[in-house]
Nucleic acid binder design. Structure first.
Lengths: 171, 171
DNA sequence: AAAGATTGACCACTCAATCTTA
DNA sequence: TAAGATTGAGTGGTCAATCTTT
């Protein structure tokens, strides 16, 4: 349905089904996962990603740059998000000693408690909506498919800049 | 990495890999696809979904309600988005004759031209980033996986309301 | 000049409240 | 009162411009 007269060649039914299915699943999954986690833990997935990265770091503190490599966000997004998390008391900002241009962010006690409390919820949610539903074979295949697509995206000129930006760092 | 002490049971490496892979792929894919389509066609994916639905409709016009069933959006999102598209001259709003509460939206000439011009770009982009990269077997499996997850999401109480809202309509 | 980071304007989405008609 | 739709406030994201340090 809804296949407009495509001069070259339209998507086959198989392609359309795979693409529409992927899109709808992705949207719904993200929306519901997000609502559930926020309700149960007070943290968004974005919050969790940041806090988990800090939690795993040597001294529970990381440079903004290192965080950016981990979560792979635009730098302005990271900046805005960290500012909001700081206001909520989840992280704290310090100056960077080895490079005064830099910024270092550390977990506050509240942040540590929040992320530790959220870990189980997240795990349960992932199980309920993804991993428990698929056979081991499907699970591996899904990882493989994601990987193939990711690789292609990484080669797209659009993405090159970001990769390049990040590549020039010492993490 | 970043697996915080989970009391119950943490995700296995296999699960983490599949989940993280899926999330990152999904984010990157959406972002790049979106940038590419906007650059090439001036339409976002959301725009395209709406215009394609209208284009496929009997008289190139649909009630907001029918549109909502097709794209499965929150009603406020649809309302805001249609208002913006109307401002851009892509759709036009009329009153609904059989139910004065309703709203009917139709394609403008500009809208028709835009969506017809975008069809090929969209098709190429889907091919380049998804369907060309996968074997037929992977493609079918991907559709199947999406379907399984969608089904589970649809059973979640969170989603029930939306389904119920939409179910009470005559499309 | 280039790199690390921040800022402000703007856009899109969600939630809850509202308005109108059935 | 409930259904179809709109509205406004609040949140999170992008882009481009900026500031400071290297």
């Amino acid at each position: 349905m809804a296949s407009i007269t495509a001069p070259g060649a339209a998507l086959t039914a198989r392609e359309e089904a795979a693409w529409r299915g992927l899109r709808r699943m992705q949207t719904l999954l993200a929306a519901q996962m997000s609502r559930r986690l926020i309700r149960e833990t007070g943290l968004s997935e974005a919050d969790y990603d940041i806090l988990a990265a800090l939690h795993a770091a040597p001294d529970r503190r990381l440079r903004a740059l290192a965080l950016r490599c981990t979560v792979q966000w635009e730098k302005s997004r990271l900046s805005h998000h960290l500012a909001r998390m700081q206001r909520r008391g989840l992280v704290e900002r310090e100056d960077c000693v080895e490079d005064s241009r830099g910024a270092v962010f550390g977990l506050t006690d509240a942040g540590r408690i929040a992320v530790e409390g959220a870990a189980q919820s997240r795990c349960d949610a992932v199980r309920a909506f993804v991993t428990d539903l698929l056979t081991p074979v499907q699970l591996d295949l899904l990882a493989e498919i994601s990987d193939v697509i990711m690789r292609a995206l990484a080669e797209d000129p659009e993405h090159r800049q970001i990769v390049h930006e990040l590549a020039s760092d010492t993490v």
